[in-house]
Amino acid sequence: MSNPILQVSGLTMDFGGIRALNKLDLDVHAGEIVALIGPNGAGKTTFFNCVTGIYTPTAGDVLMTRPGDKKPISLKGLKPNYVTQKGLARTFQNIRLFSKMTVLENVMIGRHCRTKAFILGAVLRNASTRREEQQIAEMSYSLLEKVKLADLANELAENLSYGAQRRLEIARALATEPHLLLLDEPAAGMNPQETQALIELIREISSDGQAILLIEHDMKLVMALSDRIYVMDYGKKIAEGNPEQIRTNPEVIKAYLGEDVDA
């Protein structure tokens, strides 16, 4: 079997005296949907922040093997923009869109790290810059079609409904052409219909061979989508397996429901 796209080993993050992540191991292989679940405060978002370079982990390593690469590259300690450039894109738990920009422009920002026109290109606006700009717009538009926001392309992002904003974040992340897409609670605050639509969207994205790692509380979504599930509590991994194994794992039930007093 080839190297996993993302291989996290012994990841540890301390905030002062608090150990938010404790020697966490996690792999994501090509084409997989992997879910990371756990009670509130378990350290899931901290894990995302460590992997994407917003925090620098205290110990451990984050390795990434891109398709075609022989050796894995380490993402540890890289700045967030370089992590994205290497092929890891994320969405945010609390939506972070550019609210005063249009829907299309939001996605176009995602193309930034794959294009290169700079000051001279902007001023001269030569043929290659114009072509690049056209390509950015076309690709962004087709991504909007994919997440069914194409008819709102010229609307300001802040005017979108909540579910649409979540979908826009996914489109923006996809615009960076990631090898691995990280979704931080994509279904938070959605109603059942929106969640159902989201499940279908994620399936569709995954069917293109996109590897996805997601954090989610909505068990319906997690169980419907995931190939494998990791369960965290207090910064530690407590279980790992396919949905069926996780559903019946006593450790997981204990973490979520608390210990039975009579037992």
Partner: peptide, 30 residues
């Protein structure tokens, strides 16, 4: 020049940077 800068990839990045730095970095903007 200013007019052209405003409508360019760089101009977009500036506006995005003004709005949300963390999201900007996560989208690969240096």
């Amino acid at each position: 020049v200013v007019n052209r800068l405003q409508d360019s990839r760089l101009g977009r990045a500036w506006i995005a940077l003004r709005e949300d730095e963390i999201a900007c970095q996560a989208m690969g903007i240096d």
